[in-house]
Design a protein around this nucleic acid. Structure first.
Lengths: 345, 345
DNA sequence: CTGAAAGCGCTTACAG
DNA sequence: CTGAAAGCGCTTACAG
């Protein structure tokens, strides 16, 4: 059986004063005498009194807890972002509940239901790839639970958003490949309908345009964010009669798959085919050859999304306008795309 | 402002009956007429009534929520285990709160405080490397909150435990290296004081003993579970006058570090030095050469720990005795330790 | 400065 | 079969 904890009632009984007075003394109300305050505070401390947050939640309809939904916690980008969320939440007195959507609309719905029922105060979310419909987020907002989007955003939801400059990141990666002398650059993109994928394809396309390289449909494939997805698409690309001399991967998982497939197939990177990806740097440096990467400030994205969210939670009125923050990505060149250099020994 | 949800009171008012009757009808109590039941249920449905779990928590001192503390969610082993926890919890009607200790006692304490305050119903935990003192878990137990250990266990806590047969896994890995002809086998172990590390060292030691190979202190180093840790220890080992011809790594992170360091240093695996680790297979297969691994059933460990926990939560009385489940690991041989084979082309 | 009362949303003995 | 009352742990107008 659960041991009962110390309550205000208990303190009141021991001190032979009323619950109201104890409660006020505990919150340091100005209308209580210093004398009683001290008595209450001392006893509370010696009894290890801690207010019951559940009672407070029931009273205030607030829980000092925020939710975060990501597609997958095992993904380095998201686990870093969660680190950023926890960092800000913790320092401002909130706790974090982590949910995984596994890219499924149904699990996203279930998380939202839990959030609404449990009176979570707000939500930071990277939308699942299969959520064309986002009514569940609108519903939360209508219930007064603010939602902030990060990474995967959508125009359909009016709120603060934090994302990376995917367009520019993809542009730079593609331009780098072109400057290395690549002429047949393929792109394995993330899931369709995801904002991130679309923006990256646009950046890729624009870089090709700038250098008058024709855009070819058969060189752009969509893939789930998995290693297997990257591998299969690579097989498909390299099987083409006119095969690419460079592949640009949209995520670290996908890019790992590309790397693996190319090695299986016996290609030399970067001599025969150059590779670059939107990657987790630690991981890509381990591979042979290390993969050039567009890296993203995941931790910082989590931080910024969370402080925007907490501002929404703590301000009474809806803000005049919502903000979209676009953070820069960073291009890190490694051996996998360095055609021109002397070989590393 | 938060929109008010439908309450029992509201339903009672609309139907002009008492709250008690509504409550009973909703829980399908046998003492309510079919007639009223139907009326209540119909209205509840059309109003999308859902009971307020916070009110229930306050009443029952239970939350239908379990906690799970792991050192790091970004670690594949733990994120898979969390998958197993969620799987069972979800199917038995519980929700999961995820906490990271980041191997820090302080953060573990903070998680336990939150668990106790928030009336979380039970806890699944892999103890942090810096928690020699485990009083906080004992305290939870004394408060009636059951705790189940997995992976990182300790004799100091009386409870159900789920772990892998680390001793046997390490024995087999070491024996495999010996059978490949390795004679100077080093071991980069995990943090001291962690049960897992100790057991693996024992298995390693016993395999050496079986084949009359002397155990040498300078060939066994402890490391945090990070890539950097593995790298540094590898430098240290290879700098020895009498350097090893095989390294056995205790975790995937450590083993990635070993792999990376050996490549940096210009050694050929497995010809000049063989490598094997306790690894995430997907990851180790990506490297060149792919790393032989002792793999662990992470998902299943999470599942088993959780069902043991839920049994504790749902049974009134403490069980007569606690159970320790030891799951087998699995040895997967890849190129990094295959000295005898013809070279792969 | 302090206390009694009402209420957050629910359940459950206790009456009838 | 149904309802009034008490209570989970807390806060906060309202009196005094």
């Amino acid at each position: 059986m659960r041991k009962a904890s110390v309550t205000i009632k208990e303190i009141a009984r021991l001190l032979e004063i009323s619950k109201s007075t104890v409660s006020r003394a505990l919150r340091d109300s100005s209308e209580i005498s210093e004398d009683t305050k001290k008595k209450v505070l001392d006893l509370a401390e010696s009894l290890h009194y801690a207010p019951n947050p559940i009672a407070l939640s029931l009273l205030k309809n607030r829980t000092q807890t925020i939710g975060v939904i990501v597609p997958e916690i095992a993904n380095r980008f998201y686990s870093s972002a969660i680190g950023g969320v926890e960092d800000i939440a913790y320092s401002r007195g909130y706790h974090t509940m982590i949910y995984q959507s596994h890219e499924s609309l149904e699990r996203e719905l279930s998380a939202c239901r839990h959030i609404s029922l449990r009176r979570v105060d707000g939500l930071v979310v990277a939308i699942s790839a299969h959520s064309e419909n986002i009514d569940h987020f609108i519903e939360l907002q209508e219930q007064g639970i603010p939602v902030v989007l990060f990474d995967r955003v959508t125009d359909a939801l009016q709120t603060h958003k934090v994302r990376v400059d995917d367009y520019k990141g993809a542009f730079e990666a593609t331009e780098h490949l072109i400057l290395q002398g690549c002429e047949r650059i393929a792109h394995i993109a993330g899931p369709k309908q995801v904002s991130v994928s679309t923006n990256r394809i646009e950046g890729y396309r624009e870089a090709l345009r700038k250098y008058n390289i024709p855009f070819r449909d058969e060189w752009v494939l969509h893939s789930p964010i998995t290693q297997a997805g990257g591998t299969e698409r690579t097989y498909q690309l390299m099987a083409l009669r006119n095969r690419p001399d460079a592949i640009f991967g949209a995520s670290d998982r996908i890019t790992m798959g590309i790397h693996w497939a190319l090695r299986q197939l016996g290609y030399k990177m970067p001599e025969e085919i150059a590779v670059i990806g939107f990657c987790d740097l630690a991981m890509s440096s381990l591979l042979d050859p290390p993969i050039s990467s567009v890296t993203q400030p995941a931790f910082e994205m989590g931080q910024q999304a969370t402080s925007l969210l907490l501002d929404l939670i703590e301000s009474k009125n809806t803000p005049a306008s919502y903000e979209t923050r676009v953070l820069p990505s960073n291009l890190v060149i490694q051996k996998s795309s360095l055609k021109a250099t002397v070989p590393v020994n």
